[in-house]
Design a protein around this nucleic acid. Structure first.
Length: 430
RNA sequence: GUGAUUGUAGCUCAGUUGGUUAGAGCGCCAGGUUGUGGCCCUGGAGGUCGGGGGUUCGAGCCCCCUCAUUCACCCCA
């Protein structure tokens, strides 16, 4: 056991895997841009109250999962961001973004922190990308956000994802439904588990989320949310579904989908991957018209957004073998030095090549030729370029094609021309 | 926070009812080829068997504690 190791629930990402992340990030950038979303970057920590107000004090995230700290005894409590939406909304309100234009379409990528017990698909530091559409939450806006999310998945080649969707109703609907639920569950309070008992008072909707087998029958008999939706809410939901059908986005209506964050209203959705194990939600989101007011905005800011877990996305892609196309770029030429007296000259060669944008590598440890060649082979260089006594006296350099083992002697000019062409040719490949 | 699981070389793992100097494959380094890689052959480095305590003549194997891992619950991305 090494003295120092990564903190529980965190991990290192090594170069081979970084290439995969960059590939996914590139697709996110491209798709978000196509849909007219611009990237926003916000602080990694905020005042704790922001999350307490924004996410909701009854949620597990706020209740037991936040990394909270106090910079000094008199300082205000700070918290590492456990999600992005509250911070993005805070940034929008603070900078009065909506005054400059009525609608803002923002996307983000970044690390989040939640103090949960790690397991497959769950870490204490993890990454999400997501989008927030501020200023409108019309069915068209909701559909736009869902479409963007699904398009990212499609562009990456993901298969067998399941989109579930539900309407939670507006504030009035939820209030009426909440009362109905409390009336229904109260007589059974002694049957409920501790968590559900607590929710009975604070947030009875979430009792429906429980997977406790003992409660399933009771939950099945509970009043249905959709029976309490107003005509306007139903029509709003139907319109969202209409848009999705029009775009041939497959979905399942799931009346039990509630989602854990307090701020959602009306449409809520979640995407799951069958490849993931117990933690199978790869992305989710919904409408949150009330959040801005909750955070002190003087005006209403209707909004809708989604977030996707990067690690879970990458895991699913791995399982579906979607990374074959992402190969690390090997150096084109490896400069091999015959004897150490020629090392300085060889380094000059390396500079010449690199200045010509030719990817070049050289041994910096003064190792034997055999070792240098082995290294060239190991890193899959295309060519070995020899620098020895002969080259120095004749001005002709030996260039060996490591795939074919063919070797030719060239002037420096011819060398630059040939390798320059090869480099250009390589760049054309995906 | 609860439950279970697993900790032996850089990696993947063997290690027989507790019994001499703890092994293999891959990887790494070097030599076989003092101007040339891959394949092959030979050799080498690398382990306080997660840590601590206990039982025993003797512990990688048994017992206790502890740390860490993984998976699941809860919940979420």
């Amino acid at each position: 056991m090494p003295q120092y190791q990564a903190v529980k629930g965190t991990r290192d990402i090594f170069p081979e895997e970084v290439a995969r992340w960059k590939y996914v990030e590139g697709v996110v950038d491209a798709q978000a841009s196509l849909y007219g979303f611009s990237e926003i970057r916000i602080p990694v920590f905020e005042y704790t109250e922001l999350f307490q107000r924004g996410i909701g004090s009854t949620t597990d995230i706020v209740g037991k999962e936040m990394f909270t700290f106090q910079p000094d005894p008199k300082g205000r409590s700070l918290t590492l961001r456990p999600e992005m939406t509250a911070g993005v909304m805070r940034a929008a309100i603070q900078n009065n973004l909506l005054a400059s234009a009525p609608v803002h379409k923002l996307y983000y990528m970044g690390e989040l922190f939640r103090k949960e017990r790690p397991q497959a698909g769950r870490q204490r530091q993890f990454s999400q990308f997501g989008a927030e559409l501020l200023g409108v939450s019309s069915p068209a806006a909701v559909a736009e956000v869902i479409t963007l999310m699904m398009e990212v998945f499609r562009s990456l080649g993901l298969q067998r994802l399941k989109l579930r969707i539900n309407s939670l109703g507006d504030a009035d609907d939820r209030l009426r439904y909440r009362v109905a639920l409390q009336n229904y569950f109260s007589p059974f309070a002694d049957i409920l588990d501790d968590a559900s008992k607590e929710r009975l008072e604070k947030n009875p909707l979430r009792i429906l989320d429980s997977k406790n087998p003992a409660l399933q029958e009771l939950i099945a008999g509970a009043p249905k949310l959709y029976e309490y939706l107003s005509e306007a809410s139903v029509q709003d939901f139907e319109k969202v579904l209409f848009y999705l059908k029009e775009r041939t986005i497959a979905f399942d209506i799931d009346h039990r989908l509630v989602r854990g964050l307090d701020y959602y209203c009306n449409t809520a959705f979640e995407v799951t991957s069958s490849e993931l194990g117990a933690q199978d939600a790869i992305g989710g989101g919904g409408r949150y018209d009330g959040l801005a007011r909750e955070l002190g905005s003087s005006t209403d800011v209707p909004a809708v957004g989604f977030a996707v877990g990067m690690e879970r996305l990458l895991m699913t892609m791995e399982k579906q073998a979607l990374f074959d196309v992402v190969a690390p770029q090997a150096p084109l030429v490896y400069v091999v030095v015959q004897q150490q007296e020629l090392a300085d000259h060889a380094l000059q060669m390396v500079c010449r090549l690199r200045n010509a944008s030719i990817k070049t590598e050289i041994d910096l440890a003064a190792r034997s030729m055999k070792a240098q060649m082995r290294e060239a082979n190991r890193i899959k260089a295309s060519y070995a370029l020899f620098v020895g006594a002969t080259e120095l006296t004749t001005g002709l350099y030996s260039l060996k094609n490591l795939a074919t083992s063919e070797q030719t002697m060239l002037t420096l000019e011819a060398l630059l021309e040939l390798l320059g062409e090869s480099a250009a040719g390589m760049q054309l490949q995906p």
